[in-house]
Write a protein that binds this DNA or RNA. Structure first.
Lengths: 154, 154
DNA sequence: CCCGAATAGTCAGGGCACTGATTATTTCGT
DNA sequence: ACGAAATAATCAGTGCCCTGACTATTCGGG
């Protein structure tokens, strides 16, 4: 008789929130392209020619996951992967025409979905919602890389 | 040049939030028992003898996922599974002594972790954080089962 | 110049999450 | 009472997510 109320646990809420989002994405945006895949496309629209590691950094995916996502996008013909002639360890990534077209299409649908998703909140609450989540996520991520005491710029 | 700012996309934020939570759970609570597994233990502390489907309903896991989670907990000896003599389709679930002990131990650690996780927010913001997420998640989940217009009780 | 440290990517393995198909059992309607 | 619909659970298949071990390439100091 010592059960806790999970609805006060942020982790549990985070999981439920993501499930809810997954559901909405699937019905309103795409059944083929997932939200993480869209994030990768978006990163490459902003900065064509990034390598895998940096893409992962931009969208918050670790090296293993980003490799899988990129391989799927490559199989679908949405991006190209070529060795960096300057540094043989890297692959440089670039969207294909089809990839850019897909990104444009999904951008519109994603905006609509976000409105529905955040529909239960008024404008002020929506801003707060994003701000609070961002602060919590950033702080927890900060615990990962203790950020060396002094000097950071090369 | 039509990239969007993902930091304003609730779905992206939800994913990052969950990753942050995963990280903290792993370091502060347990490397063996995951957060969804704890949720199942917790549901069975509150209501011993539930069947799989109902456990899934309580903690927000679909039938397939709950089956996997329960099988892992069973392998670890944290719960027992017996056929319902009243209804041969069901399995009734009950924690073992070890399962109850594990739940008690993790409950303490989870509370500590939640404090760290929500640390960046003041008390008022923490309440708001939970409230906003719950409202968004509940609303999106409501879209799933349109809740038939009239009559519900058998 | 050459060896060792750092870095980019891959791979194996475990876990969560969903869908759609299948099986076993119960329940309801005629 | 019997067959059809509903329900509980399983299974196959896909995708995300992490860790730890491994490979290949580059870079830096002696």
């Amino acid at each position: 008789m010592a059960a806790v109320d999970l609805s006060t646990h942020p982790g549990h809420l985070a999981r439920r929130l993501q499930q809810a989002h997954y559901l909405l994405w699937n019905t309103m945006v795409s059944e083929e392209i997932t939200s993480p895949q869209f994030a990768v496309l978006n990163a490459l629209v902003a900065e064509p020619g990034l390598d895998q590691r940096t893409v992962g950094e931009r969208v918050g995916l670790d090296r293993s996951t980003v490799a899988e996502v990129i391989s799927r996008l490559g199989r679908r013909g949405l991006l190209d992967k070529v060795r960096d002639p300057q540094d043989g360890r890297r692959f440089l990534l670039r969207l294909t025409q089809e990839g850019e077209r897909t990104h444009r299409k999904l951008t519109v649908r994603t905006a609509r979905m976000n409105q529905v998703f955040l529909g239960p909140l008024d404008a002020e609450e929506q801003a707060l919602f994003c701000d609070l989540i961002r602060r919590v996520a950033d702080a927890a991520e900060g615990l990962r890389n203790p950020a060396e005491p002094l000097a950071a710029q090369p």
